[in-house]
Design a protein around this nucleic acid. Structure first.
Lengths: 357, 357
DNA sequence: AAGAAAAATAAAAACGTTTTTATTTTGGGC
DNA sequence: GCCCAAAATAAAAACGTTTTTATTTTTCTT
């Protein structure tokens, strides 16, 4: 019997027709029974279930997709830049995907990942996904101040959730960090500690959240009655190399920064590496505040003060919102902006070496 | 005209039937023309192309999938462990996915990602993918000494490429690191530098490559006429926390290790963090050799000696092999084992503080 | 011009499932 | 038992594309 069961598994993949031959019921009845339609009698349903179990029947995803018009896929656009030499780039994406995947567990949806290299690539990918029926919904990040993907998907009424917000007033589902607040909070701590020359290690201004962080940086200075050091805003590709190079460039200046506000773990690691190679000590010569998507700053030497929001939680929320959006829920109800938690591991005043003002 | 073109885009998604109405040709002729069949006259083909461009026709993936029996998806099983608190876990996967994605570019194949939590989860996912026609091929890593996924897929003649090798003699496509050689090379350097108490920071023995690394570690000692310190082989989940905890545990011993051979950047970072918190200095009190999938050890303080193999290259090879396997190529021709490159950044003898033997 | 063969195109079938429409069966009331 | 309505099941159609089979058109030879 066990051998026979095994042999049945090696037969051609069972279809609904196989079950029809076994049970004598029509393919329509079998389909309804397996989908638990109330129009099928319980006794009939049990016979069909038994036959299905016996041959290990599983509905063919391709047939379902064509008939239902649903691919049962949630597509994620994963940005991978052409950053230098294969280094730490987008590492938080594993946790983002993990979070999204958790939200999809137990549903019919699977996750597909489309790697994109730049903004044009992302718009092409979104277009293709919509036109070819490659997925039923879409998640993407790296939101531009004006993002063609958002424009397209809103126009097409195609379900999506963005990780971040563009700068247009549009109704769409999104999950975001309060980047303005985070940059403001980090900068204000350092200002209160006495720092005046603070460097902001920031993404490119095309990105909406880069602008948010600049806003927060400037606001912290303004609230202290000071001018923000705009010359100390570095824009780059978020790589470890960019972080290191920023330190090396900025510390060569006469009016060098005494503190750094970093955008992510990657640039933080680069900043620490640059400081190490210049013989500068964190907390003695320079203060550093990080931002953590994954809990890494705790492991740097010395452990670094950070604003931390587990990105897996964001991923889970993205997945949950997308499921709801695909059910037809109003995008206006599908928005959440998270504030990261401060984890203070260092004082903000070079260990008292700065005079408070 | 541009407005009109735009309005055409907002019409119901064009199908082959739309083109048949526009051109007067049958849907069969249109399908053949668009697939460049030689049985269609060139003049006919041009008329059909023009109509397709005019309405922005793109073949519906669901119709294609059902008729051809191909999903045009390469599925990747991405392991995410239930490691502690959302930390650095599987970060190299972004680069792996990037590499796979590069291989798929310009082909009909898209990448889907199935997050798996443990070995049973992985076997279930593989089963489902095969049974439901969710993908045409599969890539997975974290190969067990005896891996049920390999057994299943070989038995089903389902195309796959594994990242790593199990310990059974089976013919299947794989890409791997020469982990035995790498662990041997790292350990031999430290032995030659005079170290005798060397810790191996290693994955769990269920995994095939954990055994490979133990083999190489033991061989290095044996070739030097020494007994390997088997008590210094730590098995864990590859997290930063595991690396840190290993250091804290091992350095409490009377016969503490003077060197660490690490399996990845994550555990290396944890080892450095543990050393930092115990006030031990790399290259003075303890030597550390890393293994890099992504080029991060260069940025640690101090920069760490490492064996480096860009994992994106492995990813690309995985993708290329899978494409060939799906074309029906013999798996025996689809195997490659990479040796990582040594990048020496530290001496292997505590800067001369160890006496050579 | 007629006939045969090749080229080109159309009609039919296929893929597997779900949904809509049609038909049959069952149960209740008289 | 008959009639009607509800429940259950079957037949037909649908989804969009590709492939197989059938038919028509064109080209070449005599």
């Amino acid at each position: 019997m066990a051998t026979e069961m095994h042999r049945a598994r090696r037969a051609p993949t069972p279809t609904i027709k196989t079950l029809a031959e076994m049970t004598g019921y029509s393919i329509a009845t079998i389909s309804k029974a397996l989908r638990e339609s109330p129009v099928v009698a319980p006794a009939t349903r049990d016979i069909i279930y038994k036959a299905a179990r016996e041959v290990g029947y599983q509905a063919n995803a391709r047939g379902m997709a064509l008939r239902t018009g649903k691919s049962f896929q949630a597509a994620v656009l994963m940005p991978v830049t052409a950053a230098r030499d294969y280094e730490w780039d987008g590492v938080e994406y594993t946790q983002t995907l993990s979070g999204i995947s958790q939200a999809l567990e137990g549903t019919d949806y699977r996750m597909s990942v489309h790697v994109i290299r730049d903004a044009a690539d992302g718009a092409d990918a979104a277009r293709r996904i919509v036109d070819q029926g490659l997925a039923d919904g879409l998640i993407f990040s790296g939101i531009l101040a004006e993002d063609p993907r958002i424009d397209l998907l809103v126009a097409e009424h195609f379900p999506f959730v963005s990780m971040g917000r563009c700068r247009k007033e549009l109704d769409y589902a999104h999950v975001d960090i309060d980047n303005e607040w985070a940059a403001h909070a980090a900068t204000a701590r350092l200002v209160a500690g006495g720092h005046r020359r603070i460097a902001l290690v920031n993404p490119e201004r095309r990105l909406s959240y880069a602008l948010d962080r600049i806003d927060g940086f400037v606001r912290a200075f303004r609230e202290a009655g000071l001018d923000a050091p705009m010359d100390l805003i570095a824009e780059g590709d978020l790589s470890t190399h960019f972080g290191r190079q920023t330190v090396i460039d900025f510390l060569q200046r006469d009016d060098a920064p005494t503190a750094f506000v970093c955008i992510n773990e990657s640039t933080t690691l680069g900043v620490l590496s640059g400081l190490g190679s210049l013989g500068r000590q964190v907390g003695v010569d320079v203060d550093v505040i990080a931002y953590d998507d994954i809990n890494v700053s705790a492991y740097f030497t010395p452990p670094i003060t950070t604003f931390y929001q587990p990105i897996e939680v964001l991923g889970r929320t993205l997945g949950q919102f997308l499921l709801r959006r695909m059910e037809g829920e109003d995008p206006k109800a599908l928005r959440q902006v998270f504030r990261p938690t401060l984890i203070a591991r260092q004082p903000d005043n070079l260990g008292g070496r700065l005079t408070q003002n």
